[in-house]
Nucleic acid binder design. Structure first.
Lengths: 196, 196
DNA sequence: AAGCTATCTGAACATGTGTTCAGATCAAGC
DNA sequence: GCTTGATCTGAACACATGTTCAGATAGCTT
C-alpha cells in the first residue's frame, strides 16, 4: 500500500522541480545535467527518475505547469466592462505575475526550442491562448472606438514583448516598486494604443 | 611562407562562423557540438581549431562581431536635429537592422549567459552603449519638451524590448513588408512617448 | 515487532563531449 | 620540379552525459 504520510516523495518531488527550474533558468536546459539537479536536491542522479521519466519530461512539466498557472490566474481576474479598463487590468496582471515568477517566465521564453515537437505544440497553444486574450481586448477597444490600433495582431505582439521585457532588468529592492513600474508601463501602453 | 592566395582558410574560416551562427541560433550554444559545426562545414572537428582557440571564443567572437557591426552601422546613420526625428531614425534603424540579421540578434539575447564572465562584461558594455543611444534621445526629447517620458531609463528598456520583439514573429514573405512593420511600430512608439 | 514497499544508492552502460596532436595532403613560391 | 608550410585527417584522451537497475534502506501499516 502506498505511503500517504511522511513519504519522502512529498518533499523530494517539489524540491526536484524547484532545483530544475532554478538551474534551467540560470544556465539553460542543455547546459544543466541531471547530476547537477540531483546534487542540488541532495540525492543521487538515479533517484530523479522516481519523479520524471526523463529530462525532457521534466522541462515540459515545468513549462506546462507554469502556463496552466498563468492561464488560471488570468481567467480568475476580474473582467471590467470597457476595453480600456480590461487593458489596464492585463498590463498590471502581466507585470505582477511575471515579476513574481522570474525563473518560470525566463525558461518559458528561452527553452521552447529545447522541447520535443509534440511538447512544443502543447506549450505554444497555451501561449497563443494567453496572448490571444490581449489581442481580443485590443480588438474590442478598436470596435468600441476606445483605441486606435489598426493592426491588433502586431500591437499585441509589440505590447507583450514590451511588458515581458520588464523581467530582463527589474530587480527586487531596486529604486522602483512593482506597482510603480506597472504605473509607468500602463502609461506608455495607454498612450501607444490611443488616438494620438 | 604563408599562403596569401587560394588558401582554404579564406573559405573555411567564414564558413565555420556561418555554421556556428546558424546552429547556435537554432539549437543553442550548449546544445551544439563542435562535431556538428564541423559536419556542417564538411570538415573534421579538429580542423575547427585552426579558426578558434576553443568553443567559447567562437561564441564570443560571433557576439562581438555582431555588436561591432551594430554600433558601427548606428553611428553611420544620419543624425537629424530634433529628438523626434532621431527617435524615428532609431526605431526604423533598429527594426531594419535586426530583421536583416535574425540569427545574430537571437544569440545576442539568448547566449549571454553562456559567456565567460570576462567575455560577458565586454558584450554587455557594447550593448549598454547601444541602448544608451536610445536613452539619450529620450532624455533630449524630454528636455526639448518634445516627449513626455518621466523615466527615460525605463522607457528605453520598454521600447528596446518592444522593437526587438519583432524578431520573434516576423517572417520574410509574410503579409507585411519591413517598412510597413516599421511604420506601425514607429506609430506606437511616437504615441507612447508623447504627452498623451 | 514484523513485513512491506516506496524511495534511494552506487555502479554500470553506451555514447557524446571539447580538445590535442602526429602525420598525411596539397597548393604556392622558388 | 622540389620544397615549404598552411591546412586537414583520424585517432586518441580524459571526462561528462542520460538512463537503467539490482540491491540497500527506512518508515508506514498491520
Amino acid at each position: 500500500m502506498a505511503r500517504t504520510q511522511g513519504s519522502h516523495s512529498d518533499i523530494t518531488g517539489p524540491r526536484v522541480r524547484e532545483a530544475a527550474l532554478r538551474l534551467f533558468a540560470q544556465h539553460g536546459y542543455a547546459a544543466v545535467s541531471m547530476r547537477q539537479i540531483a546534487r542540488e536536491v541532495g540525492v543521487q542522479a538515479g533517484a530523479l527518475y522516481n519523479y520524471t521519466p526523463d529530462k525532457q519530461a521534466l522541462l515540459f512539466s515545468l513549462l506546462q505547469g507554469h502556463m496552466d498557472e498563468l492561464l488560471a490566474a488570468w481567467e480568475a481576474e476580474p473582467r471590467p466592462q470597457g476595453a480600456r479598463d480590461r487593458l489596464e487590468g492585463f498590463v498590471r496582471f502581466h507585470i505582477r505575475f511575471n515579476l513574481a515568477r522570474p525563473e518560470a517566465i525566463f525558461i518559458s521564453y528561452m527553452e521552447l526550442r529545447n522541447l520535443d515537437p509534440e511538447n512544443f505544440a502543447v506549450i505554444e497553444a497555451l501561449r497563443k491562448r494567453y496572448e490571444g486574450a490581449l489581442e481580443e481586448i485590443l480588438r474590442d477597444g478598436q470596435t468600441e472606438g476606445a483605441f486606435s490600433v489598426p493592426d491588433t495582431r502586431l500591437a499585441s505582439y509589440a505590447l507583450i514583448a514590451m511588458l515581458t521585457g520588464v523581467n530582463t532588468w527589474y530587480r527586487a529592492g531596486g529604486r522602483l516598486s512593482i506597482e510603480e513600474v506597472a504605473d509607468i508601463y500602463w502609461d506608455m501602453v495607454r498612450k501607444a494604443v490611443s488616438a494620438g
